[in-house]
Design a protein around this nucleic acid. Structure first.
Length: 302
DNA sequence: AACTTCGACAACCGCAATACT
DNA sequence: CAGTATTGCGGTTGTCGAAGT
């Protein structure tokens, strides 16, 4: 049984929008605001389906859109975000004020893909084009990384992700507020074969936005050579306390370079640990981006 | 000048998530 | 709780203008 169409298609216009249609849509939304897209066309006197109206408004008519003229900084930001998030265009767009997911998607496909190819980088994997296939098990212990995912509280209001690079001297703890992640879903084997993972991700990835998939997709797939180990453990295990003792503990806000934000939860993190002094902790320049670029709330899973 | 190819991007479609009843 | 409606996302297609032949 298929679903009924989003609208009555028999009497709707399709294709390019006319100036008159744009004006009608703009004036209606100015008067009544966004939302209720299904009923909007009729109310606004448009022979369009609500979906079409929404798309037109969001991608083209919204007053806060920049449209075109991507800067070099934006290019690099998109590349970095794509390497982290994959084709999550809406998430990427959320990091670029005045840009829409559709615009970024188009820009990626027409400009950035070619740009990366010219650099000898595979746009899909962000790895060198001529790099031979590699095994996920070929790395030494010192190169391995582990990813610890902690659910701090019963009501799942925050999830702490700690990426521990054994070869590095730092540990970054990232707290993502208001992410709903059922505990049972945050578990996968410590050594996921890349083939298995790729298969799962590409063939069974069904737009699932839960945290498990995001972590798999953004970390494992983007860095397939890393032997990532994801475990769930009760809050503040002794072992972890030791591990965190001399490491930096930054909340997600601070890790994004927003250390002065009111949403900063470093104090909580540090307070929970046996040591720590947030005031002496330098802000971690997440992705190498400058402070202020990010609005962490936009990274919440929708 | 006519035709073809290509690039850019607006718009559509199908699906999944979420909200509502 | 189940069924239905709505919204939002990502992949794909269609269209149009510019460049090339």
């Amino acid at each position: 049984m298929g679903r009924s169409p989003c609208c009555e298609k028999a009497h709707t216009n399709k294709g390019a929008w006319t100036k008159e249609e744009d004006d009608r849509l703009i004036s209606y939304i100015r008067a009544h605001g966004e939302g209720c897209w299904r009923s909007l066309p009729k109310a606004a006197g448009l022979l369009r389906c609500g979906k079409s109206c929404r798309l037109r408004w969001i991608n083209y008519l919204r007053p806060d859109l920049k449209r075109g003229n991507f800067t070099e900084e934006e290019d690099e930001l998109i590349i970095k975000l794509h390497s982290l998030l994959g084709n999550k265009w809406s998430l990427i767009a959320g990091r670029l004020p005045g840009r829409t997911d559709n615009e970024i998607k188009n820009y990626w496909n027409t400009h950035i893909r070619r740009k990366l190819l010219n650099r000898g980088i595979d746009p899909a994997t962000h790895r060198p084009l001529n790099e031979p296939p590699h095994s996920s098990h070929s790395h030494s212990q010192s190169q391995s990384q582990s990813l610890h995912l902690q659910n701090h509280n019963q009501n799942q209001e925050s999830v702490t992700i700690a990426v521990v690079a054994a070869s590095a001297t730092t540990t970054t703890t990232t707290t993502i507020p208001a992410v709903t992640v059922p505990t049972t879903t945050i578990s996968f084997a410590s050594s996921i074969k890349q083939e298995q993972y790729h298969h799962h991700h590409h063939h069974h990835y069904n737009h699932n936005h839960n945290q498990e998939m995001m972590i798999k997709g953004s970390v494992l797939e983007r860095c397939p050579d890393l032997n990532l180990e994801l475990t769930i453990s009760p809050p503040r295990q002794q072992e972890q306390d030791e591990q965190f003792k001399n490491s930096r503990n930054l909340c997600f806000v601070c890790s994004l370079g927003l250390q002065n934000s009111k949403d900063c939860s470093c104090d909580e993190i540090v307070g929970n640990s046996s040591t720590g002094n947030a005031s002496t902790t330098p802000a971690y320049d997440f992705l190498g981006l400058k402070a202020g670029v990010w609005d962490y709330k936009g990274l919440e899973m929708k």
